[in-house]
């Protein structure tokens, strides 16, 4: 029973001792890893590699002799990807929103690798922010999200709030990550009605309630999903996850509160011009990213986040985090997503 074990943890304080022991990984068999996260905004690009033992400090062995076939299950068309000799396989085509794809990878003397995913539809989301004053008189920002559910899909969402660095922000370089996406500036003092939670939405504040000071979320960021990203903004929270697979229509609402302490700690949202005066330029405080993801990618991201957070933990006392995989006869992830980005001033 775990609780007793915890009691024992107390005893460890008294007279525990540690002893090192070496171990071996017997009969290690390398497996194939397929990583492919697709969206409508990037061409087909997947990566194939082999696993290696924990004792192996060489580079991962890339797989360049594979035959990779993609089949669009929504229209029946198939095509092959071309190898780039770095374990990557590409084709100058973009996945299509709402389509389901099957991937088959054949490697000599190996079982066929197989997976299926889909690219979720474009998000219909409204974001409203309000300045609210708490009981202590502090000014907090309350951000409400309202997503119109696509009744034909299971719904898995991930959102992340990033601090905007004014040094990088200007009208032409606004939101480098999000230039491909629709931007919807949101006024920071918009006395709108509170977001309703019809459609069985998640209770406000239940997920991602950032009340309090946040830990810098350098554990996982959306940036990691995008190869062409040069901009590394500071994530204020680890990505938060929510799904409403039971909801087939209606609204899904969520709410987060940014505490005044957080706001004040990043209130450098102004630009100092060459003359040393402060420009009253309208620079956003935060960037809010909301992503609709396939169910497998949702599980992958969740477990990947948990893994990163618990990387230090690997003991017989704790079952380790197992990163989700939907690759049959192999490991890795084949998932799709669609992303929207918003600025909050």
């Amino acid at each position: 029973m775990q609780k007793a074990l915890f009691g024992i943890l107390t005893l460890i304080l008294i007279y525990s001792c540690e002893d090192r022991r070496e171990f071996e990984v017997n009969d290690f068999e390398k497996e194939i890893v397929l990583n492919a996260i697709i969206s409508t905004d990037s061409i087909w690009n997947i990566n194939l590699s082999y696993t290696k033992s924990i004792f192996d400090d060489t580079d991962f062995e890339q797989i360049n002799n594979a035959s990779v076939k993609i089949k669009d299950l929504s229209n029946g068309q198939s095509f092959f990807l071309d190898t780039k000799k770095t374990g990557n396989y590409t084709r100058d085509l973009n996945p299509v929103e709402g389509h389901e794809y099957e991937i088959n990878v054949n490697i000599p003397s190996r079982q066929e690798i197989h997976a299926i995913t889909y690219v979720p539809s474009v998000l219909e989301v409204d974001v409203v922010s309000n300045l609210v004053i708490d009981e202590n008189g502090n000014e907090n920002i309350e951000i409400g999200l309202e997503i119109t559910d696509n009744p034909n899909e299971e719904n898995y969402y991930v959102w992340e709030l990033l601090e905007v660095d004014p040094k990088y922000f200007n009208e032409t370089k606004a939101a480098p990550i999000s230039t491909k996406y629709e931007e919807e500036p949101v006024d920071n003092v918009t006395p709108e009605d509170p977001i309703d939670t019809d459609g069985g939405g998640i209770n406000p504040g239940n997920i991602g309630n950032t009340n309090g000071t946040l830990t810098a979320g350098d554990i996982f960021s959306f940036n990691t999903l995008q190869d062409d990203s040069e901009y590394q903004s500071k994530s204020l929270n680890d990505p938060s996850f929510f799904s409403e697979s039971d909801v087939k229509a209606g609204k899904i609402a969520n709410k987060l509160i940014l505490a005044s302490s957080l706001i004040s700690s990043i209130n450098d949202n102004y630009v100092i011009n060459e003359s040393g005066t402060i420009e009253e330029e309208r620079v956003p405080l935060f960037e809010l990213k909301i992503m609709a993801v396939s169910s497998d990618l949702y599980d992958y991201l969740r477990t990947y986040q948990q893994y990163k957070r618990s990387e230090i933990i690997n003991s017989s006392f704790a079952d380790p985090i197992i990163i989700h995989s939907n690759i049959r006869n192999g490991l890795g992830i084949f998932g799709g997503y669609n992303l929207k980005s918003f600025y909050i001033y």
Partner: peptide, 15 residues
């Protein structure tokens, strides 16, 4: 026991 390494989607090894 996490005894195997694989490549993560961020290019980092994952146990």
């Amino acid at each position: 026991l996490l005894d195997t390494q694989r490549l993560g989607t961020d290019g980092e090894p994952v146990l």
